[in-house]
Design a binder for these strands. Structure first.
Lengths: 160, 160
DNA sequence: TAGGCATATATGCAAATGCATGTACTTTGC
DNA sequence: GCAAAGTACATGCATTTGCATATATGCCTA
């Protein structure tokens, strides 16, 4: 007995989310188990990686949008990375409440070394399961989820 | 200037992983911000949810495969859930090193209540960005990543 | 421009986490 | 059938995290 289109859609969405969570957990564990992180945690590497992608020094708040950590936890993680010489923190001239963060030379070097190995490992893991089309589909779909469009009134109405 | 097929594939894989991570982080934050979790953390809910899916009481180790937490952390989280009356822990008869975990009535009830609301919210969030085909593709692809096939010698050779 | 509300980041503190290791049990090799 | 190695889970301890809140600055209105 087929469900209503509405119920189907709901199942589809929940199954997709569970699949994404499972894939995430499986791969994160696999990557974490590799011996490439030196004295960094994966979360710390994530911060260095995010900073490495930006030409402009990043605000703590902007960094926070990309990292799954509470704001205070991120603030202190950055503090530790500053102490260890991987990140530079300087006041923002435009908004003196804020901070601007960038990689030091040491931080950039560390990110590059770890990143090179990690990237190989990521490509290997994903390519082992998916062909080129699937990889492209996964990218396209996940980027849609990562950068949601602004909710319109219609969306809100539909959501009810 | 197009890269070699090998380089392309590597880029594809890394881009897909970054997209998956971004989608994961964005949605996790969105869900975490919702006011439906009562006195549970999302991680604790995840444990209750995993247990709710299994007819047989689960071994701690099996649970650990599904949850992104160290074994000791999971052991103690389960301990807290037992103390709070959501999970029952009994020794495994076959292997007396082990433990079998199941939901109590209270745990099942709590999972169902929270799960009902969370499922709505998940479906809404994913459906807002993806159509039915995309949801189905995402499921299929992520399940492949979540349950990898056993590595053969050929895979190892290719990976080099 | 002073007062009040909003925003960006930091800090105090209890709780949760990871790493190293301990304990109990099981399996293996002889 | 027993010693040695392996596996499943728990515990000690230092570190990290989250929550609530403080601090500092920006913005807006009278």
């Amino acid at each position: 007995m087929p469900g209503s289109p509405r119920t189907d859609r709901r199942r589809l969405g929940n199954d997709a989310w569970e699949a994404l969570l499972s894939a995430h957990a499986r791969l994160m564990k696999q990557f974490a188990a590799e011996d490439i992180w030196q004295d960094l945690s994966m979360r710390e590497y994530d911060v260095l990686y995010t900073l490495s992608k930006c030409r402009e020094p990043l605000r703590l708040g902007e960094l926070h949008q990309h990292v799954l950590l509470s704001q205070p936890a991120l603030s202190r993680m950055v503090e530790r990375l500053v102490e260890r010489g991987f990140v530079a923190r300087c006041p923002d001239v435009r908004d003196r409440r804020g901070v601007r963060l960038s990689l030091t030379a040491a931080g950039r070097d560390r990110q590059r070394r770890i990143g090179a190995r990690h990237a190989r490992s990521v490509a290997r893991a994903l390519s082992a399961e998916l062909d080129g089309d699937e990889l492209a589909q996964l990218s396209a779909i996940c980027w849609k989820l990562a950068r949601p469009h602004i909710a319109s009134k219609d969306d809100v109405k539909e959501a009810t």
